[in-house]
Design a protein around this nucleic acid. Structure first.
Lengths: 66, 66
DNA sequence: CCATAATGTAAATTATATTTGTCATTATGA
DNA sequence: TCATAATGACAAATATAATTTACATTATGG
């Protein structure tokens, strides 16, 4: 569950459909990325981050201990 | 051409082959990503960043003006 | 020169991200 | 109640990332 992405989208007052159109993807793809258990391409991540005025790290980076 | 990735790899004294093994990818995949014109998956980007002690932004983020 | 490590490149194949379509659910408003 | 927007979920088809295999180039060291 990518809560950071979902929150960033809602902050921008965008529906999944609207974000999908901004990044030229399908609504389902956005839904799946927010749901997690999903592995989007770097290009799509970059478009999403730019559309939401965030960086890759802000949306997709998790601190790891190992 | 992803020069940041290439430099980060060389800083770590890793060959493409060695980095590939660390992230469980093929040597060719690493070479193609460094060459650019390529669209890796987020999961692979995360593994690469962790292996090189960098974040996503440090390796894959470009400031955009638009 | 010969051997080898490191890298670049290309074609064929496999794996999987993404799309498309469809139906169900929830919430909101007329 | 009825209509609709938003979302979740699922399956099948398509697009493309990634692998595999192979051969070439460059550099280094014997």
């Amino acid at each position: 569950m990518n809560i950071k992405l979902k929150l960033a989208r809602i902050e921008k007052n965008l529906s999944q459909q609207e974000l999908a159109e901004l990044v030229q993807a399908s609504r389902q793809t956005i839904g799946l990325i927010e749901k997690g258990q999903y592995n989007p391409s770097l290009a799509l991540c970059l478009k999403i981050a730019q559309s939401l005025d965030k960086t890759l790290d802000q949306l997709f980076w998790e601190e790891k201990d190992d």
